[in-house]
């Protein structure tokens, strides 16, 4: 059974995929208040991801969650580069680099500046 990874699209990410076929694949969430791309992950690849990141897990929707921000960032980079959602192999090729960045993330993530 495949699993999924949701990639949230903020304004900056939306601009990067403007005019590409990816625009048609954008899903609206919560009355359009959130926009997201959904990447399908075959089971053997999702096992590889779960093994690589000890906090990662499958949620009740079948989505792989609690992934490092570095992973999500790399995933979007590959999507924007390939203009396709079929990029999971490319991301897995970058696993050592992502794991290295994720290590730093387990200590500190800068908080957002809100009032």
């Amino acid at each position: 059974m495949p699993h999924y990874i949701g990639v949230i699209l903020d304004e900056n990410r939306l601009a990067q995929i403007k005019g590409t076929p990816l625009e048609e694949k954008i899903q609206d969430l919560f009355g359009g208040q959130l926009k997201m791309l959904v990447v399908e992950v075959p089971e053997d690849k999702s096992e590889q991801i779960l093994k690589a990141f000890d906090r990662a897990r499958i949620d009740s929707r079948g989505f792989i969650e609690d992934l490092p921000v570095a992973f999500k960032r790399a995933l979007f980079e590959e999507i924007a580069k390939a203009k396709s959602l079929d990029v999971i192999d490319k991301v897995l090729e970058r696993l050592p680099e992502i794991q290295e960045a994720a290590k730093k993330e387990s200590e500190y993530i800068p908080p957002p500046e809100i009032e």
């Binding site: 949701g6 949230i8 903020d10 919560f30 009355g31 208040q33 959130l34 897990r57 949620d59 009740s60 929707r61 989505f63 969650e65 609690d66 992934l67 921000v69 999500k72 993530i109 800068p110 957002p112 809100i114």
Partner: peptide
């Protein structure tokens, strides 16, 4: 999904108030 929300928080995205 609590974990979906955690992902959003970690990425620095303020969750929409409907969530």
């Amino acid at each position: 999904s609590g974990s979906f929300l955690r992902g959003m928080v970690a990425e620095g995205v303020m969750p929409p108030k409907v969530v």
